[in-house]
Nucleic acid binder design. Structure first.
Lengths: 228, 228
DNA sequence: ACCTGAACACCGTTCAAGT
DNA sequence: ACCTGAACACCGTTCAAGT
């Protein structure tokens, strides 16, 4: 069989933006951001005909990951009847995507009002009408949910960066809890009290609890359009 | 008068960690992260006797900025009677600190459960008791507020990085709104509807609206310890 | 003891040459 | 038209030499 690419080592033929983005995702997952060209089996400068620079490439990779993470939420039949549940599922999808790929969480915080972030904003905002949120409150409500999701994403990503072992987090949390317990009692009474709970807490449940707080607050808009 | 430092150009005498952190803050404010050594009037390697590396330095600078931003919130007499207002003020202090120094917002997202982030966590969490939140819910509640604040911080910082002109944001927002309006109507109906509101919206008010949603949700814990 | 600044290491990007 | 990879630019860090 005939190989069309000039480099016979390279699987899959010629380069394209899509292939470069895929390779970027695979590498960020496996090794961190280095070694992109090695993975693509190209010269170090080859990608610059397809993507402007590294920043743009990482944004495209983040966009692609979020797009897949959110795919299908809209179609689930139950979602239309239960916008509250749909928003929880959507949030969890993002949460899960970032748990698996911490670098996505890091990037999400850096593109305001664009691409990946906009997908989440749309997903959340598009369900507020069905939740009964009046038009006037939808922008603030979607923004609150988005900011919370992004904040949790960033913290999660940062924690994963400190402790690379995904899954077994108990040692890590125990160590952090010990730091908390050592803080100055005069300045950090609350932190010290929470130290005992840190090791046993479930990130995912805490994330959902946060979503629920915001949803409850938002639902208050239905009955009380304005306060004194 | 006698100069004790060996470099007569250098104001303030010998180096110290505190001076280096101060210089880092001033430089991050003015020029971005470059030119630290120039500002300190030292050789490029001089800081490494005082700080481990750049990452540690930026964390220390972020910590110092947040400490100052939060200073005094605890002492305000009205705060003790009004924990809700105290949390709003605390959030706004962080929000404001990041508006003035976008780099702080970027850094905040990168240190989980530590230093600067812990200060905010303590400030928020320490007021939940007075809000009437039961012990069992305080961890989740403080975490929700923290994540929202950090998410908003990150978005704000990212927006400021895209548009360096602090203060006059209307051009920038108008441009973003135009992008929103151009999105595929089938995939981004909500985003397109919000485009009209974007240019006129007030970041600060939207931030407070988010805090209020969460506080309202949290206050629901007082009367309903568990749901069906 | 502390600072200097040349040198090194690393990595993102360019571009002349190659196919 | 597309890719190669040496070269360049930039910047964080080290360390032998200087005071």
């Amino acid at each position: 069989m005939k190989t069309e690419s000039r480099n016979p080592q390279r699987p899959g033929g010629a380069l394209s933006k899509a292939r470069i983005v895929e390779a970027a995702i695979a590498i960020l997952d496996a090794e961190g951001e280095a070694a992109l060209s090695a993975r693509l089996a190209t010269g170090s400068g080859a990608i610059y005909g397809h993507v402007a620079d590294k920043k743009t490439l990482l944004a495209a990779a983040t966009d692609a990951v979020i797009e897949r993470a959110l795919a299908g939420v809209a179609e689930e039949p139950a979602s239309n009847d239960e916008p509250r549940e749909a928003i929880r599922v959507l949030g969890l999808r993002v949460f899960e995507a970032i748990r698996v790929r911490p670098w996505v969480g890091t990037r999400l915080a850096r593109e305001p009002w664009q691409s990946a972030t906009l997908q989440i904003f749309e997903g959340v905002g598009g369900r507020l009408e069905a939740l009964g949120v009046p038009q006037a409150g939808q922008f603030d409500a979607a923004s609150a949910l988005l900011n919370f999701i992004l904040g949790a994403a960033g913290q999660n990503a940062a924690a994963a960066r400190l402790d690379p072992r995904i899954g077994d987090r108990s040692d890590f949390l125990t160590a952090i809890a010990a730091q908390w317990a050592r803080r100055d009692p005069a300045r950090y009474p609350f932190v010290r009290r929470m130290a005992a709970q840190l090791a046993g807490h479930d990130d995912r449940e805490q994330f959902l609890a946060g979503i629920d707080f915001i949803l409850s607050g938002i639902e208050g808009l239905r009955k009380e359009p304005s306060l004194p």
